[in-house]
Amino acid sequence: MTTVSEPAFCEPVFEEPWQAQAFALANALIDKGFFSAEEWAQALGAEIRRAQAAGDPDTGETYYNHWLAALERLCADKGLALGAEVARRAEEWRDAYLATPHGKPVSLRNR
């Protein structure tokens, strides 16, 4: 059985900017009442169990991946942003990045 150990170094609050963005989005939506804190905890818990069942080691390192999956699922269930919409938007952003010369601001207008 894996033991619980704490790394000696001081952990950053967020390891990558996207984690902070996903964190803020969920909380902003809760604050606005699009879903409750309880619904959020249930959705996140369900996502963690799903990932665990699929073989995720669930050591806490993949926590924000579960967070994002729960957020996407809840946004789709509540009709705030559907999966297909998000997928399409991701491709639009990818195209925008690829069409933007290095060093220039990336905008969806650049596609």
Partner: peptide, 28 residues
């Protein structure tokens, strides 16, 4: 790499997409 910008990782792109949609819709 001069003619384009490297897109972020897939996971970062997913968050960016969700965020831009929710902002556009005025939800956040």
């Amino acid at each position: 790499h001069r003619d384009h910008t490297e897109p972020p990782s897939d996971v970062a792109l997913r968050v960016k997409s969700l965020e831009s949609l929710l902002i556009e819709k005025g939800l956040v």
